Structure formats: C-alpha cells, structure tokens
Simulated assay, not measured.
Amino acid sequence: MGLAGAGIAAVAPCATRAATNGSSLEAPGPGEQIAAVTALDQPGGPDDIANVVAFLASHTAHRITGQVTDASGGLLLGPRT
C-alpha cells in the first residue's frame, strides 16, 4: 500500500457474458470465435470478474499495486494451436 494506505489496481476483463450480451456470446459465430482464441475456451461471466476484484481488494493482495490484472481467460496468450 502507498503512503495514503491505498493500493491501485485495475482489471482487464475482455469478453464477459452478461444479461445484455449473453445471447450474442452464446450464438455460434461470436461465441465460437472467442472460444477459439481464449485459453480457457469460453468467455467469462460476471462472477469470474467479481472474484478477481474481490481478491485484489482483499488483504491477501496487499502487495499488488499499480498493476492491470488480466482477467480475459487467456486471450492475451494467443490462439491455441
């Protein structure tokens, strides 16, 4: 934590299923495209992102500051081969 007692963290979620886009991510086209390039083979859900945020807000993560945490399910790893 910094001098003010606060850490700074950001979460980069990528494609996430939600009530507003769930049907489009379940459709054959977009859903399959995301699955093809994501290491975990599917888009994440709100709970997946909330778990990352909860961890970063916990005392367990007190040494993490000034970081952007990738919560994309492995999108940045590149396509599976």
Rank of each mutant, 00 (worst) to 15 (best):
M1A: 06
M1K: 03
M1H: 04
G2C: 01
L3H: 05
L3Q: 04
L3R: 03
A4D: 10
G5C: 02
A6E: 02
A6L: 02
G7I: 03
I8Q: 06
I8Y: 06
I8V: 12
A9Y: 04
A10W: 07
V11H: 10
V11S: 08
C14M: 08
C14S: 15
T16W: 05
T16M: 08
T16C: 06
R17I: 10
R17V: 10
R17H: 13
R17A: 12
A19F: 09
A19C: 00
A19L: 06
A19I: 12
T20I: 11
N21V: 10
G22A: 07
G22T: 14
S23N: 07
S24G: 00
S24N: 02
E26N: 04
E26F: 03
A27W: 12
G29V: 14
G29A: 14
P30S: 12
G31V: 01
G31N: 05
Q33D: 04
Q33C: 01
I34T: 08
I34G: 03
I34D: 11
I34P: 01
A35H: 11
A35Q: 09
A35G: 12
A35S: 15
A35I: 10
A36C: 09
A36I: 09
A36W: 13
V37T: 08
T38H: 07
A39P: 03
A39T: 15
D41E: 14
Q42M: 12
P43C: 11
G44D: 12
G44V: 14
G44E: 12
G44A: 11
G44N: 06
G45L: 06
G45Q: 09
P46M: 14
D47W: 03
D47M: 02
I49Y: 13
I49G: 12
I49K: 03
A50T: 14
A50M: 08
N51L: 10
N51V: 05
V53M: 08
V53G: 13
V53K: 04
A54H: 13
F55R: 11
S58G: 10
S58T: 06
S58E: 09
H59E: 14
H59Q: 03
H59P: 10
T60I: 05
A61T: 04
H62W: 01
H62Q: 00
R63T: 02
I64N: 00
I64P: 02
T65W: 08
G66Q: 01
G66H: 06
V68H: 06
V68D: 14
T69E: 12
T69S: 13
T69P: 00
T69M: 15
T69H: 09
D70Q: 02
D70F: 14
A71M: 07
A71L: 07
S72P: 13
S72Q: 05
S72D: 06
G73D: 07
G74N: 04
L75F: 13
L76S: 10
G78K: 00
P79R: 13
P79A: 15
P79E: 06
R80N: 13
R80E: 13
T81H: 12
